[in-house]
């Protein structure tokens, strides 16, 4: 037991320009996980006692230079790196995902090296920021990734994306094959029926191998472009989506309490729960 019981709490890191700290903390609390929002310039020593980290979405340094590039150089990322080495659960969402990749924590095959990039979205008829709901398929083996251990194999999740630079790319020829071999590709874009595809209707940014979420070799760090905290309650699921989650949502009309129930993204936060783990 470390000081203040922090080892059973999650630190949601507020980088300069993060903007999803509050709802991410709320999603953790709803999942029964205690969480604090910790500012980038607070004591690194205290930070190192937390049991897990979430790097939330937003626009750290307003995506200047490249999304995540400047925040990756912040001093607190050292505490995140140390936590990753200790096997602590670490989830980077959207901008947090970009930071993890720019800091070389994911994919993390050659330790410390930056092995991928999150390039500007690529889709026909448009560039720039893109916000919509998509489907993800959980393709990793059961238990491979600490953060998705509560998802079923091949489970399909509706979830929103919102980013301008979300396309996983690499210039290394064999990296994608290595990622597959290592079972590090955790979540891929798919259609309502779980069919993975690179069609722009399905893969919204042109990501290589339709990757939406990648873990490190150890499986305790997940870099995920979509936003599970925006799908953590049933009410957040658009009622028109072709999914049972939407059917449930429409079915809850007039029963507000039911809409406060779990949404498809909740289990990623529940995975931080040490009690269950």
């Amino acid at each position: 037991m470390s000081r203040d019981g922090l080892d059973r709490r999650v630190a949601v890191l507020g980088f300069p320009g993060s903007n999803c700290e509050v709802e991410t903390q709320r999603a953790l609390l709803a999942a029964g996980v205690k969480a604090d929002i910790v500012r980038w310039n607070e004591s690194p020593d205290r930070l190192s006692h937390y049991g897990g980290f979430v790097l939330p979405g937003g626009f750290s340094y307003q995506d200047r230079v490249r999304a995540g590039a400047l925040a990756a150089k912040e001093t607190i990322v050292e505490a995140v790196t140390a936590g990753a080495e200790e096997g602590k659960p670490i989830l980077g969402i959207c901008n947090g995902c970009q930071i993890l990749v720019e800091a070389g924590l994911v994919p993390g095959i050659r330790e410390g090296d930056v092995e991928m990039a999150l390039a500007p979205n690529h889709r026909p008829g448009g560039a720039g920021y893109y916000c919509r709901w998509v489907f993800l398929k959980h393709v990793a083996s059961p238990g491979r990734c600490l953060l998705t251990r509560l998802l079923g194999q091949s489970e399909v999740l509706p979830i929103p994306i919102a980013h301008a630079e979300g396309r996983f790319v690499t210039s290394s020829n064999d990296l994608v094959a290595t990622l597959r071999e290592n079972d590090q590709v955790v979540l891929r874009y798919c259609d309502a029926h779980g069919r993975v595809s690179s069609s722009p209707d399905v893969n919204p940014n042109g990501s290589v191998d339709d990757i939406a979420g990648l873990c490190n070799p150890r499986g305790n760090v997940l870099a995920l472009m979509p936003h599970p905290e925006r799908a953590a309650w049933l009410r957040q699921v658009p009622e028109g989506m072709e999914t049972l989650w939407a059917t449930d949502r429409s079915g809850a009309a007039g029963r507000g309490q039911d809409l406060e129930n779990e949404g498809p993204g909740r289990r990623l936060f529940e995975a931080f729960g040490w009690e269950q783990g």
Partner: peptide, 16 residues
């Protein structure tokens, strides 16, 4: 060129 967290900034050679 960004090689690691400590080295490089302006370009990420995987995309640029």
């Amino acid at each position: 060129a960004t090689r690691s967290r400590r080295r490089g900034l302006l370009a990420n050679p995987h995309a640029q």
